[in-house]
Amino acid sequence: MIGITITRTKSGLIQSFEISGHALFADRGKDIVCAGVSAVSVGAINAVHELTGITPDLEHRADGFLRCVVPEELPENTNEKIQLILEAMAVSLRSIEEQYGKHIQITFKKQEVE
């Protein structure tokens, strides 16, 4: 199963997300759940960079692990753009979860302190 954790700040902004595991929906190279999650998450990271010039703090491993952390203290208009992109990512991932819930689980966490 693919596990996704989306962490929000106390005020509700997406601060980071982490993806790990494998969907095991189909054989490697034919797994549409894995492909969908990869396309949505990597597409969001690419959009953040392309549309705002900001490169989030990233960790990516060959085993499918991906962690993305939004930099702190960004200009308000830049942060608004990033949040819109990441919220769209979250909507897309929830859509995949609704359809393929046996293969993907999303957890939302909220930080206690900002």
Rank of each mutant, 00 (worst) to 15 (best):
D63E: 10
L13K: 12
D31C: 11
T78F: 05
S41V: 09
I4K: 00
Q105S: 08
A35D: 08
L86W: 01
I45E: 01
E76Y: 12
R8T: 10
C68Y: 05
F17T: 02
H103M: 08
V70Y: 01
Q111P: 06
H60A: 15
V37C: 14
V33Q: 01
L13S: 06
S11H: 12
A39I: 14
K10S: 12
L86C: 04
E97W: 06
S11G: 09
T78P: 02
D57S: 14
E76I: 12
M89W: 03
T9R: 06
E80Y: 07
I32Y: 04
C68A: 09
P75H: 04
I85S: 00
M89K: 06
E98I: 15
G29E: 13
E76R: 13
H22I: 10
D63R: 07
F65D: 02
S38P: 11
Q111W: 08
L13F: 06
T55Y: 14
L66F: 14
A62P: 14
P56W: 11
I4F: 00
P75K: 03
N79L: 15
I14E: 02
Q99C: 13
Q105G: 04
G43T: 10
L93W: 04
A62G: 13
E112S: 15
E87Q: 12
D57E: 15
I104R: 01
V70D: 00
G3T: 02
G3K: 02
E87T: 10
E59R: 13
V70A: 02
L84P: 01
K81H: 06
